[in-house]
């Protein structure tokens, strides 16, 4: 019976090692860890998404309200489309809201800044699958430097 117990412990050891391997694999395969709680999806088109990545944060005034679910290219007009998974508890955003891609700090990662719009008569709330019309693209530092140099030449 003692050898049965040893076999059991070794089996457990192998299973733990396998679980650890799976955990490392998931981290690389970029799946699992599907946020916390229920979400609904919103879409936004940008001209340029810069360094935005799936699972980047969506923030309203610094408060995280969701994550970037996935990023893909619209097959018709070749513009990047970002799918946002917003937590269900924040489901009262008017369709005049706007989103912009911001950077936290000079060297930090990029996130989506969500600016809730005004509500008045005839304005509906954003629902699952809606496009957010008002978007501002990421600032690309190289473009900015280029513009700066160009404007200096004109002086």
């Amino acid at each position: 019976m003692a050898s049965r117990k040893i076999e059991l412990m070794v089996g457990l050891f192998v299973v733990i090692a396998f679980a650890a391997t799976m955990m490392l694999a998931m981290k690389v395969a970029n799946q699992g860890m599907s946020g916390n709680g229920d979400t609904y999806q919103l879409l936004a088109k940008f001209d340029n998404i810069g360094g935005l990545k799936p699972r980047s944060a969506v923030k309203v005034g610094g408060v995280t309200i969701g994550r970037v679910e996935k990023i893909f290219l619209d097959p018709d007009d070749y513009t990047p489309v970002v799918e946002l998974a917003i937590f269900k508890e924040y489901n009262e955003f008017p369709e005049t809201s706007s989103v912009s891609i911001l950077t936290s700090g000079l060297l930090g990662e990029q996130y989506i800044g969500f600016q809730p719009g005004f509500t008045f008569d005839g304005i509906e709330m954003l629902k699952e699958g809606d496009y957010i019309e008002d978007t501002k693209s990421a600032l690309v530092l190289e473009d900015l430097i280029g513009q700066f140099l160009f404007s200096r030449d004109n002086d």
Binding site: V28, M33, K53, S56, R67, E109
Partner: peptide, 14 residues
Amino acid sequence: AGSYWSIMQATVEW
């Protein structure tokens, strides 16, 4: 938490 895992996932290669 999102940036801890997402930047890790983007950086670590299998």
